[in-house]
Simulated scan of single mutants.
Amino acid sequence: MEEWFHLLRNPIHNCDVVTQERVYRSFSRYVYKDIYLIVYDRQLTQDIIQEAFFKISTLAPRLRSAQNILGWIRQVTRHTTVDFLRKWKLDRQVVSNIYDYIKVGTSEISLVEEVETKIRNELLYQALSELKLDYRTMLHMCYLEGQSYREISKVLNLSETALNQRMARARKKLLKHFLSKWADCDERKSERSS
């Protein structure tokens, strides 16, 4: 899987189209979670991945050493994300002023948002069902039933400190499962549109 980063050492435009696509998809999978955990927006994450890939594919052939190239890729990606967010924040202010004067077809937007919300919820429930029973129980009691940590700790016969630690682990596992499903869903959509 990680052989792709060695291909970055050569100019990417010298590779055939199939290899270029494979390198890009592998790169995208490698950095997706890092970027998504910063921006929490799928489309913005995809935009940043494209920009980071362009930077890395331009800079990589000039690297003197391949040592710790994966760390370098993550560092460039993080810097690209921060730069992108700074620029995006300025652009958003300009765009929000424009939207004050333009009416947007809200029915289209609400339909897209509704479909995306439904897909996200289905994937979230799938990810939840893959967790261990005690993690599922704690998360269900807290987020779906609205019980407090004190109430949950009494029912499960745990100290609040232990519950807090287990909840943190459960949320981390849930996020990991969910993000992998979300990335897979996103990849399937891009394959269908190709």
Score class of each variant (00 low, 15 high):
142 C>A: 12
63 L>I: 06
143 Y>M: 03
127 A>F: 03
163 L>E: 00
61 P>L: 06
97 N>S: 07
65 S>C: 03
144 L>W: 07
158 L>R: 15
171 R>K: 14
174 L>E: 01
164 N>G: 07
128 L>F: 15
155 V>A: 14
149 Y>R: 02
20 Q>A: 03
26 S>D: 14
94 V>D: 12
26 S>W: 07
133 L>Q: 11
27 F>V: 00
8 L>A: 08
163 L>K: 05
37 L>N: 14
151 E>F: 02
32 Y>L: 04
31 V>E: 14
57 S>T: 08
60 A>G: 03
10 N>Q: 11
116 E>V: 06
137 T>C: 04
183 A>L: 13
161 T>A: 10
71 G>P: 00
132 K>E: 13
38 I>L: 10
171 R>Y: 03
51 E>W: 01
97 N>R: 13
100 D>I: 09
7 L>Q: 11
105 G>M: 14
36 Y>M: 02
56 I>N: 02
116 E>M: 04
33 K>T: 11
58 T>R: 14
152 I>P: 00
94 V>F: 06
9 R>E: 11
5 F>E: 10
172 K>W: 09
138 M>K: 10
174 L>W: 14
160 E>S: 00
173 K>M: 12
145 E>Y: 07
99 Y>W: 15
180 S>L: 14
173 K>I: 07
26 S>G: 09
193 S>G: 03
90 L>N: 08
121 N>Y: 07
144 L>P: 02
19 T>P: 02
37 L>A: 05
189 K>L: 15
180 S>V: 10
105 G>W: 14
92 R>M: 00
23 V>K: 07
144 L>E: 12
63 L>M: 12
2 E>A: 10
134 D>G: 08
27 F>L: 03
90 L>E: 03
156 L>Q: 09
175 L>W: 07
11 P>V: 13
12 I>V: 06
122 E>N: 12
81 T>A: 11
94 V>Y: 12
77 T>I: 10
150 R>W: 01
174 L>Q: 05
4 W>R: 02
